[in-house]
């Protein structure tokens, strides 16, 4: 099996949280493979380890044990700064609660990953293009407070794609939205996958969303029960 051809290869991932005396086993031996360009939904009851898995896939966190390759690179042994670089280059995040900087305009929010990428040229144009792609051309200078939930999530989406990531990770991206905005966000996400071939992983409770994806990975008590 070649790791090259896969967006994600995870082998026997475990994650143990130490809560005082108690050990919480959030992941107990998760192995998954996801191909480039795949659209995958991760489902499971609350507390089953979905977010923990997403954080490891997104290089925000390290597994307690196991190996993890992102886009062919062994990530599980990297140090903090290397992880930051990988996040910046290869991963786009969409959060349930948007996570925008409230003081900054939509445009500045979208530019932020470019700042940390050290790319100074054409920052502005690229941010504008990204905002146009999510249909917010007329809201660029608005602050998050002045935007609806759906619009805020679209800003977050523009921010996620600005660095042309290999994968987009969306942890319950529609959880805080009404069903209409939720559908719009979902179709934007699927659009990006179709146009650019970006691998898309969505954590969701919504069976409707799961129907739209090619594949569903089900977690239960930190283990994959169906993929």
């Amino acid at each position: 099996m070649s790791k090259k051809g896969k967006a994600i290869v995870a082998k026997d991932l475990t994650k143990v949280y130490q809560m005082g005396e108690v050990q919480v086993h959030a992941l107990c031996g998760v192995s998954i493979e996801i191909k480039h360009g795949e659209v995958v939904a991760i489902m499971g009851p609350s507390g089953s380890g979905k977010s923990t898995l997403m954080n490891i896939i997104g290089c925000l966190d390290r597994p307690t044990s196991g190996e993890y390759y992102l886009d062919g690179e062994l990530v599980s042994g990297m140090n903090d700064d290397q992880l930051a670089l990988v996040r910046n280059r290869k991963v786009g995040f969409v959060f349930q609660n948007f996570n925008l900087l409230s003081r900054s305009s939509a445009l500045l929010n979208v530019e932020l990953p470019l700042r940390y990428a050290g790319q100074r040229e054409r920052q502005r144009e690229r941010a504008v293009v990204a905002l146009e792609a999510v249909g917010l051309a007329d809201r660029m200078d608005h602050k998050p407070m002045e935007l609806s939930g759906g619009q805020q999530q679209r800003v977050a989406l523009a921010r996620a794609i600005i660095n042309d990531p290999a994968i987009i990770l969306a942890d319950e991206p529609t959880g805080n939205l009404d069903s209409k905005s939720g559908k719009e966000i979902l179709s934007l996400l699927l659009d990006m996958n179709k146009k650019k071939g970006t691998t898309l992983i969505i954590v969701t409770h919504d069976p409707g969303i799961a129907e739209e994806t090619e594949r569903v990975i089900r977690l239960y008590d930190g283990q994959v029960v169906d993929s």
Binding site: A84, R87, F93, P113
Partner: peptide, 8 residues
């Protein structure tokens, strides 16, 4: 910021 790639 860290999620978006900010280093220490």
């Amino acid at each position: 910021r860290k999620a978006l790639g900010a280093r220490k």
